[in-house]
Design a protein around this nucleic acid. Sequence first.
DNA 1: TATTGTTATACTCTATAACTATA
DNA 2: TATAGTTATAGAGTATAACAATA
Lengths: 153, 153
Amino acid sequence: MDETSEREPSELPVAMGHLPELLGYALRRAQVAVFADFHDRFSSDDITPAQFGVLEVLKYNPGLRQTQVSAALGVRRTNFVPLFDGLEARGLAERRKVPADRRAFALYLTPKGEDLLQRLEQRVCEHEAKFTARIGADGKQQLLRLLHLLCDN
Amino acid sequence: MDETSEREPSELPVAMGHLPELLGYALRRAQVAVFADFHDRFSSDDITPAQFGVLEVLKYNPGLRQTQVSAALGVRRTNFVPLFDGLEARGLAERRKVPADRRAFALYLTPKGEDLLQRLEQRVCEHEAKFTARIGADGKQQLLRLLHLLCDN
DNA sequence: TATTGTTATACTCTATAACTATA
DNA sequence: TATAGTTATAGAGTATAACAATA
């Protein structure tokens, strides 16, 4: 194949227009990059970011009601059911009946879930460190501040 | 209902543990917030962020091959097919045969697509302005810089 | 009547394998 | 043998409606 004529279209860089200046586009790309690294590190443990979030909330709020956990994480209560089922089936967390309200379940980590979470938290720090290395510790604090401002209105 | 005893669990704020300091968690929340606003503004035009990205890339790279467009946007070529089909069916963009390579398609905006994109771009500025108001113009530039550093390695 | 948790379901996104027609 | 585009398909993630048990 003739190199000069063949490479004609593919060697030119693609102009992205205004996309790089759009917050939504930049946020999506960054989120995909960070979640991909999370997946690389934790798929062998069968832990997704959403599952990690549930474990983390239960650690600091043992006994919270199912609907409160799902609301805090921005997951609809209907989608939270299979999400928590997976953790419970693996013995990482459990539902307990609440005498005061027989409709409700209070959620808790099991000892096994606490152990796993502790080990996960250490490795999450390494995951964070990978990206902190790219933007610096100050950069990370600035970034978190700006991201929270974006959400919290 | 007795207010003091009833509110016991729901009135306490939920502790989010380390989640607010995790880049992935903060990025996801911010992205959801920004995309929700995009959806509010553009769902009546049946335009998703991904479709807007395609139109934008075609505006600045008319005649680019299908695979190049999908690669530039981080969409697998197999998923790009129905994405572009939707735009083509609505007369916003089109595939043209390439004489030099009869396997390939070169992609173009139609005049109708150019018109729509111009109107979309104006309204995307309003969408951006909503979030820029929360973090300031400097904040936005800092945020974009940090987000790009996070991806570009 | 309203709320908690659940089921069923549907729609979008994303991911893989395999096909066709060309190169 | 490799590449461009396509099809089929399967798995997540996310959305709504409706139900049973309980408040």
